[in-house]
Design a protein around this nucleic acid. Structure first.
Lengths: 207, 207
DNA sequence: ACCAAGTTAGTAATTGGTGACTATCTTAAT
DNA sequence: ATTAAGATAGTCACCAATTACTAACTTGGT
């Protein structure tokens, strides 16, 4: 009758991963700020208090979430870049990897951009700032290489182009947040990247 | 001794404007979600309860804020576009007007992008979606005109370019949120726009 | 191989605090 | 004198964190 679901007891490490996972899920649904520890517990069929067996404070959970994201993203994007033949190819591969990653975890850009950035918190803020500015620096660096190889315009401002690159991703995410799901994201991304690419390629003397 | 500040009593209409004003200010400082009605009251030297003489619910305040932003932005951007000589010029003038407007009210993109977009609320969400998609449609429309006048590449996807345009603004805002103030925003914007512009101009057959 | 002792994850109830909203009184302005 | 804005003092709901306790593993000594 009572088909009792086997309630496994998880190790603290496993449970921490579980908490991180559901936190990301919940943040995708209702936004970071409105996710409560009760929500997390409900999503895991656990009591609210037991969360604090595994994390000292709720803030620590978000820190762990952002670290998780950073590590996964670095791995995925880094692998994509490693397979590239030249700097421009690397940027394109990173872009595609990034979009695919976001498609799998729609909550992530929402977590990184904007919301947590405005917390006084400092720990979280610094973490996120580090991720974004590191990413931007990586793109700018690749663009400098591309310039050295004459793949892009010599008078291109690499940093500004990197800002546009990241903005492009933000714009695509917002677009897909408003209209439709991830299918739209992929398709829209494919159409948008060439415009960016053309923007950084050699121009005809005049600005 | 007690240099009693003359505490004027405002009409409900005046007080509503005041509430909208301080709400935007506070949202810029600490993010929309963490602004309380107590914060607003403090900022106006008023008691918390009095707020509700002028707005029925807190949500109504944010609705009023977004409506205020929409009206101001439409006016500023619309005027900029009206002075333009051609569609591309209109886009550039709109961009500059938009950046200048954001420079004056740094909270605004934070209000529109992301945070309030993820509220179930519907009223607010619809309002914001309307603003963004309307803006995007306006840009896409101008790009279509530009295409008709052969000012941009004939095979340009106007909608994708509009996504990139909006993303560019988001990227610039985020950039200036992380590093430095509005001075940086203006300067960075001037360097970034030409890259976008070049991206939409005539390309050499191949994509 | 066994089991008592120790350890750790989970529960249930509670605490301290905060925030939106309200009912009632007070006062300034016409 | 009337009335609308503001003050005061609440209520109610929610939430992070804690505490006292229990159930389920793990392990070392026999």
């Amino acid at each position: 009758m009572n088909q009792e679901v086997v309630k496994r007891r998880l190790s603290s490490e496993e449970r921490q991963s579980e908490i991180i996972r559901v936190s990301i899920e919940l943040a995708a649904e209702k936004g970071v700020d409105s996710v409560t520890t009760q929500d997390m517990a409900d999503a895991m069929q656990l009591t609210q208090g037991s969360i604090f067996r595994h994390f000292a404070t709720k803030d620590d959970i978000w820190v762990a979430v952002v670290v998780w994201i950073r590590d996964r993203m670095m791995k995925v994007v880094g692998k994509a870049a490693a397979e590239a033949s030249d700097p421009l190819d690397a940027i394109e591969r990173m872009f595609n990897a990034h979009i695919a990653f976001i498609g799998k975890h729609p909550a992530i850009p929402r977590l990184l951009f904007s919301e947590l950035l405005h917390k006084k918190n400092s720990k979280l803020r610094q973490l996120i700032e580090g991720i974004i500015s590191g990413y931007e620096a990586k793109i700018a660096g690749l663009l400098d290489e591309a310039k050295a190889q004459s793949l892009v315009s010599a008078d291109l401002d690499s940093q500004s182009a990197a800002v546009l690159y990241i903005g492009m991703i933000q714009g695509l995410v917002m677009q897909s947040t408003i209209f439709g799901g991830k299918r739209a994201l992929q398709q829209q991304a494919e159409k948008t990247f060439p415009i960016f690419l053309h923007g950084i390629k050699t121009r005809s003397s005049s600005i």
